[in-house]
C-alpha cells in the first residue's frame, strides 16, 4: 500500500492551485482600490476646480458671490495658524519625548504617562475642539484667535510627534551616547550636542507630517468657532482668523453649483500644500537619515 494516494492529491491539486492564483488577483484588486479612489478624487477635483485657479482667486477675500470669491484670508490664516502651532507643538512634544527616553525612571508613573499619550492619540479631533472651546476660548478668554486654535491643534498633534521623536531618539545607538559621556560631557551636553543632532531628521519628519495633518484638520476649528467669512487678515496671534479647511467646509454647504467649482479649487490649493510638505518630509528622511 502506498503511503499517499497520488490520484486523490492530483485531482485536488489543480483546484487548489487555481484558487491560489485567482485569490492572488483578488488581493491585488483590493490593493488597487485605494489607488483608484485616490486617482478618481484627484481627477474629479482637478476637472472641477482647475479653471478657477486664477490670480484673483488668491488675492480676493471670501465672498457670497462665487465669481468674486477667493482664498486670501483663508490662506494667510492657515499660514498664521501653522506658524503659531509649530513652535508650541515642537517644544511640548520634543520635550516630552526627551524626558520619556532620557530621564524618566522606570516606574508606574512613567508607564501611566506612556499609556496616557497613546490614548490621547485616539481621542477624536472634535473632542479636542470641545477642550479648546472651554479651556482656551472661554476660560482663558482668548476668543476665536489664532493662539486659541494653535494651542488646541498643538495638543491634538502632540501624541504623534512624541511617538515619532521617541523612535528617532531611540534609534541613536548607545555607543555614541557612551562615547560622549566617556569624554566627560554631561548628560545635557550629550543630549544637545550628540543625541538631538543625530535624531533630528526623524524628529523633523515627524513634525512636518503631523503639521500636515493639522493643516487639513477642520473639526476642532469649527467647534472653536473660527469665522468662515472674514474680510481682513490677522496681524497678531490674538486676532481672529479663517483657515483653508474652514473655507472649504463653508463653501461645500453652498447651494449654488458654481461654489462647487471654487471649493474644488480651494481643495487643490490645500492638497498642493500637503503634497509640498510631504515631499519635504520624505526628502529629509531620505537625505539626512543616518543608519548606524
Amino acid at each position: 500500500m502506498e503511503l499517499i494516494n497520488k490520484n486523490e492529491i492530483g485531482k485536488k491539486l489543480s483546484g487548489r492551485l487555481l484558487l491560489n492564483k485567482s485569490m492572488k488577483y483578488i488581493f491585488l484588486l483590493c490593493t488597487l482600490v485605494g489607488l483608484v479612489v485616490l486617482a478618481t478624487l484627484l481627477i474629479d477635483t482637478i476637472i472641477d476646480g482647475w479653471s478657477y485657479l486664477t490670480t484673483d482667486f488668491f488675492t480676493n477675500f471670501s465672498s457670497s458671490r462665487p465669481e468674486n470669491a477667493g482664498i486670501k484670508g483663508a490662506l494667510i490664516g492657515t499660514l498664521w495658524l501653522m506658524a503659531t502651532t509649530a513652535p508650541i507643538a515642537i517644544i511640548l512634544s520634543v520635550g516630552t519625548a526627551l524626558y520619556l527616553e532620557e530621564y524618566a525612571p522606570k516606574n508606574k508613573i512613567t508607564d501611566f504617562i506612556k499609556i496616557n499619550i497613546s490614548n490621547l492619540a485616539g481621542v477624536p479631533s472634535v473632542v479636542f475642539g470641545l477642550l479648546g472651546l472651554t479651556l482656551f476660548v472661554r476660560m482663558a478668554g482668548l476668543g476665536n484667535s489664532v493662539l486659541a486654535a494653535a494651542l488646541t491643534m498643538s495638543l491634538m498633534i502632540l501624541p504623534v510627534i512624541v511617538v515619532a521623536s521617541q523612535e528617532a531618539i531611540r534609534s541613536v545607538p548607545s555607543s555614541i551616547r557612551e562615547a560622549s559621556i566617556g569624554m566627560g560631557a554631561t548628560k545635557w551636553q550629550t543630549i544637545t550636542r550628540v543625541i538631538l543632532p543625530a535624531s533630528l531628521p526623524g524628529i523633523i519628519t515627524g513634525i512636518i507630517l503631523s503639521l500636515s495633518r493639522a493643516i487639513g484638520e477642520t473639526a476642532p476649528l469649527v467647534v472653536i468657532g473660527i469665522p468662515t467669512i472674514l474680510l481682513f487678515t490677522p496681524t497678531g496671534v490674538f486676532d481672529t482668523f479663517s483657515a483653508l479647511p474652514m473655507q472649504i467646509f463653508s463653501w461645500v454647504k453652498m447651494p449654488n453649483p458654481e461654489f462647487q467649482s471654487i471649493t474644488a479649487a480651494a481643495i487643490l490649493v490645500l492638497l498642493f500644500i500637503l503634497f509640498l510638505m510631504n515631499s519635504v518630509a520624505i526628502y529629509i528622511r531620505n537625505k539626512y537619515s543616518k543608519r548606524f
Binding site: G34, V37, L38, L41, D44, T45, D48, L209, S212, R213, I215, G216, E217, T218, A219, P245, I248, F249, V252, Q260, T263, A264, I267, L270, L271, L274, N278
Partner: peptide, 15 residues
Amino acid sequence: LAGIPTVVYGFFALT
C-alpha cells in the same frame, strides 16, 4: 490616502 484631509473626503462624498 491616509493623509488626505477629511473635509476633502466630505466634498468627494457629496459631489
